[in-house]
């Protein structure tokens, strides 16, 4: 069992857990993920390692409540336990000194992009951070990102905070202004990563994306997570999750991501109907 030592509500339906997992914390690196299960009936879901603390022996994950499992996860509080927590899975990000890099985090993508930006900066890169969200209240970790970057550009789709626009608008500006960008790392919703890749392709700027395909085991055993990259089938859990975004078949990814849509809808409506969890610890879990 793995204890939740800290919970933070970052935005409505967006929470952070710091989880005690000594074996995972010892080895975790930027770009990797974990697979967790809440309880005996639970499904195995992957979450990216947003931060790790080797001394405290903890892993930090940020998750968005999108369906049954993540909603249920949101009801857990500090001191609660997770049944299973396996990792660190996937290949770590490739870190070297590229000179100048851009790290783009869209929405929830800020969480996984943060440790990568930090590692790139530690490797001597000039890291330009770009982060964006739909609206002001969904923005989180601005401070943290700022500390991992040489400069940070922020945007909201509706203009409720900082600049109005999409991360791609800022990215174009950065590329035009700064020149000599050696690498772009972009993590966020599928349409955003796709749009970033469309843009960077124009400039011939190599772009790494992190793919959230549906997974089961996360060890290369089931092939559920397969994606087409450069015409070849790859298993996102062991060959990735990061890939060269210019080679990814996003169309196929988008289709495979909704395979279980009818089942997901059934599960969530059934869950909402049946759950009468009233959390009183003030963490917001009773939502």
């Amino acid at each position: 069992m793995y204890r939740i030592v800290r919970k933070e509500a970052l935005a409505p339906t967006l929470s952070l857990f710091e989880i005690e997992a000594p074996l995972v914390a010892r080895k975790a690196r930027a770009g990797q993920f974990v697979i967790l299960r809440i309880n005996e009936e639970g499904e195995r879901i992957p979450l990216t390692i947003a931060d790790f603390d080797r001394a405290r022996e903890t892993i930090t994950c940020v998750f968005q409540e999108v369906g049954k499992t993540t909603k249920e996860l949101g009801t857990l509080c500090e001191g609660d336990y997770l049944q299973d927590f396996a990792g660190p899975l996937g290949l770590p990000s490739h870190i070297e000194n590229f000179g100048r890099v851009v790290c783009v985090g869209g929405g929830l993508g800020v969480a996984p992009v943060f440790p990568i930006a930090r590692a790139l900066k530690e490797a001597g890169n000039e890291v330009i951070g770009i982060m964006g969200a739909r609206t002001k209240e969904l923005l989180f970790w601005e401070e943290k990102m700022y500390s991992a970057c040489s400069e940070l550009w922020v945007t909201t789709d509706d203009g409720s905070y900082s600049r109005k626009g999409f991360v791609t608008d800022l990215l174009r500006e950065v590329i035009e202004k700064k020149k000599d960008v050696g690498l772009c790392v972009a993590i966020g919703p599928l349409p955003m990563m796709r749009a970033v890749c469309g843009l960077t392709r124009e400039y011939g700027l190599k772009t790494v994306v992190s793919l959230n395909s549906i997974m089961v085991d996360g060890t290369g055993m089931c092939g559920c997570c397969r994606v087409t990259v450069g015409g070849k089938t790859k298993f996102a859990c062991v060959d990735g999750p990061e890939f060269d975004g210019h080679l990814v078949d996003f169309e196929e990814m988008a289709r495979r991501a909704v395979i279980y849509k009818p089942q997901e809808q059934l599960a969530v409506s059934r869950y909402v109907k049946n759950s009468a969890h009233n959390c009183s610890c003030g963490c917001g879990g009773g939502r």
Binding site: E41, E43, K68, T69, V216, M221, C222, G223, Q263, A267
Partner: peptide, 25 residues
């Protein structure tokens, strides 16, 4: 893959969906 089909069913008990959380189609 057979591994995925069987793992979802046996290990994850998808034949009991929605009582068990893992779906199969």
């Amino acid at each position: 893959s057979a591994n995925e089909f069987l793992t979802r069913t046996n290990l994850m008990k998808a034949y009991r969906f929605p009582e068990a959380d893992t779906p199969i189609r």
